[in-house]
Every structure is written in C-alpha cells, then in structure tokens.
Amino acid sequence: MDAPPENHFRSRPGAIRAWENVLHWLFRGATYLVLLCGGLVFGQIVWRGAQTVFTTRAPFVNVAFFTEAPESLHVFEYQGQKQELGDRAFNAFKVAHPDAKDVKDESYVYSAGGIFPCIVGTVLLVAGSMAIALFLGVSSAIYLNEYAHDSALVRFIRLAILNLAGVPSIVFGLFGFGMFVIFFGWNVSLIAGWFTLAFMVLPVVITASEESLKAVPKGFREGSLALGATKWQTIRQNVLPYALPGILTSSILGIARVAGETAPIMFTAAYVVRDKLPWEGLTKASDFFFQGVMALPYHIYVVSSKIPQNEYTARVQYGTAFVFLLLVALIASASIVLRSRLRNRYKW
C-alpha cells in the first residue's frame, strides 16, 4: 500500500520565521511612523490654521486675512464686554467712544489684520529667484550635457555643483549679506534676496535639468546632426522642447525649496514689518528691485519667536503657517503629479 509521498516542501515554523515576521513589522512600523509624524505636523497646522483662514459664514474664507497687512491686536474690556480690535479699529473705537480713552488694553503685535504683504513678498522672491536660477541652471546643464567633454574643468564644475548643494542655507545667507548687501551696497533688497536664493537652488536646477536632458534619446541628436543641423539647431529644435517639461517639473521642487527657506533671506531681503507694498511709493523703476519685502517664512519666524503664545496670537501664528504650508504643499504636489503624468506621456 502506498503511503502519500512525504512533502519535503512544507513550511517549517521556527525561530527564524518568527524573527522574520518581527523584522518585517519593525521596518513597516518605521515607515508608517515617519508618515504618521509628518501627518501629525501637517494635521495640527491644518486643523488650527483652518480655523483662522476659513469662516462659518459666507464667503467662508477670511478675506481680511488674505488682503490686509498685519496690525497689533488690542484686547480690552469695555462696559463689561470683552473687545478684540486691530489697530485701526481700536483708534476708531476710541474716537467713537470718548470715554474709552483710558481703557486698559493689552496689545499683541502682528496679531490682527492679515498677511497680504507677506504673500506678495514671497511670490516676488520666488518668481525672481527662480527666473535667475532657471536661466543659469538650464544653461549650465546644456553645457554639461551637450557640449562638454570630459575635461578637468568639467570635472571641477561638477564637483563645485555637488559641493554647492551641501552648503547650509545660512551660509548662503551670510554670503549674500557679505556680497550683495554690504559689498555691492544693495542693502536689504529684493534683488539681493533673488541672487542669494537663486545661487542656493542652482544645484537643484542644474541636476534636474541634466536629468531631463539625459532622458532625451541620443537618436534625436544623431538624427538631427546627420541631417546637417548645427549643434545649436539640434539642441534648440530637437532636444530642449522634449526636455523642457521635465526641467520645469523637477524645478518645481526647487521652487518649493526657495519658498520654504528662511535663513538666506533673513538678512538679505526680508523685513520684519513694512508699511508699503512693493509697488507703492516708488520714485523710479529701479527702486522696485532695491527694496526689502515681508515674506511668509520670515513672518512665521517672527510671530512664533517674538510674541508670546496665547489664544490671541495663536490665530495669526497658525493661520500664517497654514497658508504657507498649503502654498508649499501645492507646489510640491503639483510637481509630483506632473512628474508621474510626464513619465506616462513621454515614452520613446
């Protein structure tokens, strides 16, 4: 009588198997812990910030927060009622109620009004610095990928790019301060901030652009050159158009970085507070470039370190952080989405 054949391949439980499971869950746990931490930060700021930015009544968005400049908040008690008013409203109130002249109030700077000048400043800073960085970075990448042969100079350039990427942002800030603000005498200005930020993000843009240029098949270049096109004609007509989407999407990550950095603009471009908007009170066009601006990241730094933490200040703190985080997150997710789209579209 035949016994069923012995199964040599059956699974053997044992210490190794258990250990294997433990490790698997450890790795998995680490991964999700990281995501959880990120989610917690994000969630906390979104939850608290949304309370400032959105309202329950139409139009559901706190318009004043987006359109006004920061003001001091005055908290005081008047005729048994607690009042919270911004600077201008407080002055108007005092005019309307002469008996309130000597009312005892507590004031918190920057805690009323909005963050409009900061948004404007950040947009200007990002736009200008990215324009400079894209111009320099794409040109460098074209040279390195299309023209350069392996020479000592090229190796040196690559080394410089690699090292530039590791320089701390505060050192860029120091450099920008020493060179643009002091040596060139530009003072704290948009243009000093532009160049400082542009140089900081340059390695990111160069690397991204080179990757995109490399992704264009060699056949396009050879085919074009074999038809008697010059190098530049080949690059302009048959390389750049196909690399450009990639360059732009990857550079968006650079934009997110530029928008998020505080240290380089602290002493090159950002003011704690400035009454005028960038386009106000210019006597000549060049003044535009030589004025400091308010910027979201710097404003967050100011409101989180220079004023106390309490229920009145928390609104502007969380609100600003929320708007800023949302801005950066939008930029970052745009790049992630665009990149996966492009990957699907360009296949040759």
Partner: peptide, 19 residues
Amino acid sequence: VIELRKRVGMVFQKSNPFP
C-alpha cells in the same frame, strides 16, 4: 562638418524619428 553631413546622410540602426 555641417556641410559634410548635409551631403552624406545617415540612417541609424534604431529608427529615430523625431517626436
């Protein structure tokens, strides 16, 4: 070399039409 290549055309191993 540009003029040379106009007069000496080339077809490659892997077809490489431009997109």
